[in-house]
């Protein structure tokens, strides 16, 4: 089985089947570039992902492994049947996968999925962040994201006013 060595920013190396790795757009391009530039067709590609640490890279690879036999989602599922990608792609496994993560990890996963071009994972993680915003008050969102209001003077009031004028009424 053809393998590729994927190395995280903090030096952890993961040996992954190329078929699995190619489900990431970024890894696919890197493998193809390696193949074109390498004289030895049997040589094992080594890809350094300098922006993703091991804990996050492992999660991405776990997700890819779980979804290795899924059809590749069209870039925009809505074009076909009006349902969102996240709605289409999210399984019970996905929900269990995301459930124990704090939002900081989810945000790092969004960055990683975006960088590695893993659309399905990007969709479900964005959907999770979106769900923490939808239907909540500003204070509830601050609590969910562990943020404090640091507006000074009347900045918060100004921001609310600005928002009000952006909505057609």
């Amino acid at each position: 089985m053809a393998l590729v060595r994927v190395i995280s920013s903090d030096g952890a190396a993961f040996l992954v089947s190329q078929r699995l790795a190619k489900r990431s757009g970024k890894l696919k391009t890197e493998i193809e570039t390696f193949r074109k530039s390498s004289d030895n067709s049997e040589a094992q590609p080594e890809i350094r992902i300098v922006t993703i640490r091991a804990e996050i890279l492992r999660l991405v690879l776990q997700w890819l492994q779980q979804h290795q036999n899924d059809p590749v989602l069209p870039a925009n599922q809505n074009e076909q049947d009006g349902r969102g990608d996240a709605e289409m792609g999210q399984s019970q496994w996905d929900r269990d996968f995301l459930a124990p993560m704090d939002l900081g990890i989810v945000m790092e996963l969004i960055l990683a999925a975006n960088h590695l071009e893993v659309k399905g994972l990007l969709d479900i993680t964005c959907k999770l962040v979106e769900s923490k915003i939808t239907g909540r008050t500003v204070d509830e969102i601050r609590t969910a994201f562990k943020l404090k209001s640091d507006f000074k003077g009347n900045e918060e009031e100004q921001t609310r006013l600005e928002n009000r004028w952006c909505v057609e009424n």
Partner: peptide, 11 residues
């Protein structure tokens, strides 16, 4: 086909 190996844990 899609088996994932981890040959070195991070430091």
């Amino acid at each position: 086909g899609g088996v994932l190996f981890e040959d070195e844990p991070w430091l």
